[in-house]
Write a protein that binds this DNA or RNA. Structure first.
Lengths: 196, 196
DNA sequence: GCAAAAACATACCAACTAGTATGTTTTTGA
DNA sequence: TCAAAAACATACTAGTTGGTATGTTTTTGC
């Protein structure tokens, strides 16, 4: 990787971690350049302004990680309901980057930025639509394979599961402990079994 | 009501609306006093600082509205599953204060403030625990009345439903239309029926 | 090897932030 | 009625914000 590219990537990664913990609005450009140890000149050479950097985080960091962590696990599993449960379980319990007290980065940004920044809105919507499509597709396949009842509506079920995931992330922030995830996961299991 | 009390309440209400739309951090004290048409002297006479006002909003505005809008509907209905469905439906579709593009005020504040402000954290946790207790109690009653299967775990089901509510509020922000609420509500109905 | 462009550094600024110091006006209670 | 306290008003400040103007250094391509 070229040095300039590395600088840019470094800014994005450090900024992402700060924003994940502190929120976008309360993470200042000065914060970012302090932790990355680059100067303002470098920052504004790579990004027109702070918002452009924010959108770059979504498109260049969140999007790829969505693919590997949220999409791929749903693609090649034979039983989609097991795949969905395992995915959510992994995200909530095993994933060591996502912290219970800071929630889900995509959800955080949606809450904070979507109502009044069109670029963030668009980038985050892209992200979400991809996840919806994949999960609904997996359930649709499950219907054909006999893993899922034929009268299940894939999109409805997808929206329901994803809402649950985002919502339990909110609970996690309140309780500040992964303990709250377990009753949720048990009931998710029950719900998914009711689709068989 | 005394005039001073009215001033204080006016500040709280206007500030709440601003914060609901713009977020807490990005709503400045100057914003608040501009829309309330009181001066800084009045503001800082009634509140020690901005955070104290924020917590007052939770305790003096959100808490009472929680009781009437989130708690009471769950208390005297004979069928708790119907009561839950109707509650969520009302909140999502009929409630005219809550806007799809701005989500749920309590959820917004939780996302924004909980990880790093202990007072907000505490006040919001109080709020949530009340809702959990009520909903779980209603389901527990339903088990005794035969409206709910005896092997249903009330707390698990409560966490699952509430997570779904908070999560779909996130979706609403992304889609900016109540249309997304309908598939969620349909699947919520399915899920609740599976508890019978 | 060397000019041009890319990459980065430094110093600055105007706007905004929460909060305060010091007033003036209004209300209260004896 | 009248002084004291409550309620509000005005002017200010120190710190922070995103962003820019103007440099210097490093890399690139011929």
């Amino acid at each position: 990787m070229k040095k300039a590219e590395a600088t840019r990537l470094n800014i994005l990664e450090k900024a992402f971690e700060l924003i994940y913990v502190k929120g976008y609005q309360t993470t200042s450009v000065d914060d970012i350049i302090a932790t990355t140890e680059v100067t303002k000149g470098a920052f504004y050479y790579h990004f027109k302004n702070k918002d452009e950097m924010g959108v770059a985080i979504i498109n260049e960091l969140l999007k790829p990680s969505l693919t590997t962590s949220f999409i791929d696990p749903l693609l090649n599993d034979s039983d989609p309901l097991d795949a969905i449960y395992n995915l959510i379980h992994n995200l909530l319990i095993d994933n060591e980057f996502l912290k219970v007290e800071y929630g889900c980065p995509a959800s955080n940004l949606t809450h904070e930025m979507t109502p009044w920044n069109a670029d963030f809105h668009h980038a985050l919507n892209d992200l979400t639509q991809q996840w919806i499509k994949t999960m609904a597709g997996a359930i649709e396949n499950g219907k054909r394979n006999g893993h899922v009842r034929t009268n299940v509506d894939p999109l409805q079920a997808t929206m329901f599961v994803m809402s649950g995931y985002w919502g339990i992330r909110n609970f996690g922030k309140l309780e500040n402990s992964k303990k709250v995830y377990f009753p949720f996961l048990k009931e998710l299991r029950n719900y998914l079994d009711s689709l068989r």
